[in-house]
Design a protein around this nucleic acid. Structure first.
Ligand code: FES
Ligand code: FES
Lengths: 147, 147
DNA sequence: GTATTCTTGACTAAGTTAGTCGAGAATTGC
DNA sequence: GCAATTCTCGACTAACTTAGTCAAGAATAC
């Protein structure tokens, strides 16, 4: 369940859309520049987000990407699972909840607790929260430079 | 921080030693058979555990491996970190606590909370706890078969 | 000295990650 | 219709990690 560049870049792209996407679509080049993501790589991440219904994209001049739903209604858990696949910390916790309780080894319960807790925390965080935090971070950065 | 076979097998080997290691060393072949671990692979895991001071090994006939400390004094966190390396769920949380707070992106705080919580839970679990659980599991399994 | 058991390092196959590249499709404006 | 813009998609790659295997060797017991 290691979060690699897929998850990190992808979420940063969504935050970017939440912050700057109020008026019309944002182009991938703009996101890539602001968030320091290789443009060609960002393509794939946006494609996954589009297929999962998080964003919609329009082609042609003036085109770009925008969120499909309000940022407050997108949770971090769902977005990350879209980008990275299952976040389970070990194979035996992968979501095949078919009631199969076989092959449980002694440490599984600890990890199930950790996993449940993790999912709950991630589900409680929305894109709007993250965008607000990023806004604040940028503001703090700007004032610290301007002193 | 995905826990692969290294962490899973390694912990199972430690539990095995905690359960059966009361009277003298246990041989790797015995552990491998009971825990369904490839013998040659188990070698490497035992070597890591030995170098980290969890177990000691003796060669020759009647030799084998045994815990260096009481099972109640070995926590799951330390053992897993020995076997798997850092358990950080993303690269920016890797333990270089050199006060560098640069390049914090918006979602880092969520993950730091999750990571801290995870470490706390893992630190609270000892090998003795796991061995007790395994004991109980085997007992339950045995009675369910003997009905 | 021989059988036993651990120790170590080299090697491998398969899978994953983090990308790059190029051809093509849709749209806008003229 | 043409040209410019922007997204779309699949193929390809290099580097790395994982999960092992294997063989030579060292220590010990008898
Ligand atoms: S197999 Fe999942 S905890 Fe051991
Ligand atoms: S770089 Fe660690 S959370 Fe974005």
């Amino acid at each position: 369940m290691y979060i690699g560049t897929k998850g990190d870049y992808g979420i940063r792209a969504l935050i970017d859309l939440a912050m700057y996407g109020g008026a019309g679509p944002i182009q991938r080049a703009e996101i890539a520049r602001r968030q320091h993501i290789p443009e060609a790589y960002l393509d794939h991440l946006l494609a996954q987000l589009r297929r999962a219904g998080f964003i919609q994209s329009t082609r042609g001049p003036g085109g770009g990407h925008q969120l499909n739903r309000p940022a407050a209604e997108i949770c971090l858990l769902h977005a990350l699972e879209t980008l990275e696949g299952s976040l389970a910390p070990m194979p035996c916790l992968e979501d095949h909840d078919d009631g199969e309780s076989d092959s449980v080894c002694a440490q599984q319960w600890v990890w199930r607790e950790i996993y449940d807790d993790m999912r709950a925390r991630l589900q409680a965080v929305t894109l709007a929260d993250l965008a607000a935090r990023e806004q604040e971070r940028l503001r703090a950065l700007a004032t610290s430079y301007s002193i």
